[in-house]
Design a protein around this nucleic acid. Sequence first.
DNA 1: TAGATAAATAGCGAATAAGCTATATGTCAA
DNA 2: TTGACATATAGCTTATTCGCTATTTATCTA
Lengths: 108, 108
Amino acid sequence: MGMPNREDQVKALANETRIEVLRLLDDPATHFSKQESADPVEIGVCVQLLAEHFGVSQPTMSRHIELLKRAGFIVAKRQQKWTYCSRDDAALADYTRWLISSLNIKTF
Amino acid sequence: MGMPNREDQVKALANETRIEVLRLLDDPATHFSKQESADPVEIGVCVQLLAEHFGVSQPTMSRHIELLKRAGFIVAKRQQKWTYCSRDDAALADYTRWLISSLNIKTF
DNA sequence: TAGATAAATAGCGAATAAGCTATATGTCAA
DNA sequence: TTGACATATAGCTTATTCGCTATTTATCTA
């Protein structure tokens, strides 16, 4: 996947809806267990279900997903009609490590 | 200072110039030792010097500083003609802790 | 082959962001 | 009190963001 674009990552997290999407995707079982086409934990959560959860239109959620994908924070796999979204925990950990070290934050 | 506004903080870090300002303010001695009106390490760095360093106009840097202040990431103290900016390390640490825990990032 | 469903894309409007110049305000020194 | 300097504010332009609806593309099913 190569070097992540920090500008993309920084912008991806500049929106509370997208942060919340990432938070929910950490525990899909709690909020998306009603998804029947595929196991939300194993495969991911489809765009439509995310749109419904946030009360935004499907194209709007599709755009959020695109930005999160570009940042590398989520992985989307197409399966039949659906695009299943899941978190890339390693990318998120990498980003926070970068942020902390580039700001030289010492205390934790 | 009360509860930090996470929206303000998230937006404050959505810009590479502001991230770089925070990075430089961690080590003012290296880049701002030429400041004569006050010790950059003890007191802070004035707006004009920051504007020069980044090659932006004084009002533009003033605006960046305002956003960083609102986020709580820098403290600005007015002294005579100057406004000296310094990092609030505790606020930055608090923000990163919030980010990590609200995204539930485990690996470090 | 139609029709239904999921997602992506195009295109629009309102709001926000980031730069600038010009001007106002505050502070100090002559 | 005037002039100089640092900062803040006002107002403008351009670009981006974020929402929407309408449409297109892809996939499945009757």
